[in-house]
């Protein structure tokens, strides 16, 4: 006669430590990460070679040249424009010539926020093509 050992019952896996680990991971990620909501504005895009119209182009096809001053102000045709005046001027121009393009000539001392604000105003006024004259290294 052969005796058989009674089968050992399998070790019970306790789930509590697993939950603990998961919870710690969760809390770790929630604490160490900063949630940033970020957008972008394209600066260089594929296939946007500037097709500058020559002097022979129709006057309305010539881009509007806006100067961005060092203090963040915008100068158009020699006169400084406040935000409201700029929006009004651009909107009027777009209403007359929907294809209006804008060329921004920034001062080196102006900050990034001033440039972004200007781009934003132009875009909101309905201008589809805004270009920035790049500064070269000194």
């Amino acid at each position: 006669m052969r005796l058989r050992r009674s089968r050992p019952t399998g070790a019970v896996i306790t789930l509590t430590p697993l939950v603990d680990v998961l919870l710690i991971l969760l809390v770790f990620f929630m604490v160490t990460s900063r949630y940033l909501n970020l957008d972008m504005i394209p600066m260089v895009e594929r296939g946007t070679a500037p097709g500058a119209p020559g002097p022979a182009a129709a006057p309305e096809a010539r881009p509007l040249l806006l100067r961005l001053a060092a203090d963040g102000g915008v100068v158009w045709r020699g006169e400084a424009l406040g935000p409201a005046a700029l929006t009004a001027a651009l909107t009027a121009r777009v209403a007359a010539h929907p294809e209006t393009r804008v060329l921004v000539l920034p001062a080196g001392d102006a900050d990034a926020q001033a440039l972004v604000s200007l781009l934003e105003r132009a875009t909101r006024a309905g201008i589809a093509d805004v270009r920035v004259v790049r500064l070269e290294d000194r």
């Binding site: 970020l38 957008d39 972008m40 504005i41 600066m43 895009e45 290294d137």
Partner: peptide
Amino acid sequence: LPLVTALEGIGMTTVVLVVT
């Protein structure tokens, strides 16, 4: 802006500015 120009100069075709 010169940094953007330099990046374009080394062949980067898509450069974006991050905004909030």
